[in-house]
Amino acid sequence: MELVGAIITLLGAFVLLIASIGLIRMPDVYNRLQVGTKASTLGTILSLIGLVFIMPGWSGKLILLIFFIMMTNPVSSHVLARAAYFIKIPFTSRTVVDKLKVSERALTIKTED
């Protein structure tokens, strides 16, 4: 049982490593946010679940921590993506479509009338 937990923790550490490699390789802010959010959430959840297997007596606080990270991490990535769009950080040249721009222009024309 303890060995299973240790292996799950090791897997989580590798997922965190993938998050940091993706942060270096991706070309613009939004893609970095994608990789950063998903991989770091799963990495932390996996390493904490592994610790639940190793130390069953600590499961209360660890489960609280897991739920907390699952709830707050996506929210902070939404807020960062919105702020990045708001202060007009440019997209990479490989971007194909931007529906938000079209809708924003429609909205401003409507309010000016």
Binding site: A13, L23, I24, V29, S40, L65, A83
Partner: peptide, 30 residues
Amino acid sequence: IAITMIRFVIGKTVIDRIIAFDIMTIASIS
């Protein structure tokens, strides 16, 4: 965390640095 620190140093925009900070924190929790 060390690899993320590279992005924290070279990051061109503010948001890049905040993302790097966020990921460093989450890695520090585990």
